[in-house]
């Protein structure tokens, strides 16, 4: 019961980060600001959701897989953000 409550709180907190990130993506003025908003959703938001799901998963194996997914998404997201930012900088300089 306490576990489920804790999981709900974690997932809810993660979703708030996702909503904030989406708002930033839609409302911020330029590419770099938007990436800044998005990475918050990806990293912390997904981390919180994954932590909540790991509590609900009920086994260490599930928790480990979720941790792995979170780490992989962070690595991929960071790289994608860097590539988009680099691309927009190259566009500006031309």
């Amino acid at each position: 019961m306490i576990l489920a409550l804790l999981a709900t709180v974690l997932i809810g907190a993660g979703l708030i980060f996702f909503i904030a990130g989406t708002l930033g993506l839609l409302r911020f003025p330029d590419v770099l600001c938007r990436i800044h908003a998005l990475t918050k959703a990806d990293n912390i938001g997904l981390g919180l959701v994954a932590a909540g799901l790991a509590l609900l998963g009920g086994s260490w194996a599930v928790a480990f897989k979720l941790l792995l997914i979170w780490l992989l998404v962070m690595a991929a997201g960071t790289t994608a953000a860097q590539l988009v930012a680099g691309h927009s900088q190259a566009e500006d300089e031309r």
């Binding site: 690595a75 960071t78 190259a90």
Partner: peptide
């Protein structure tokens, strides 16, 4: 594309490929 040679991407690919 212009991303060829990005060191960050190469680093990611080195980690990701075995997975």
């Amino acid at each position: 594309p212009r991303i060829v040679g990005s060191e960050v991407l190469q680093g990611l690919v080195r980690v990701l490929l075995p997975f």
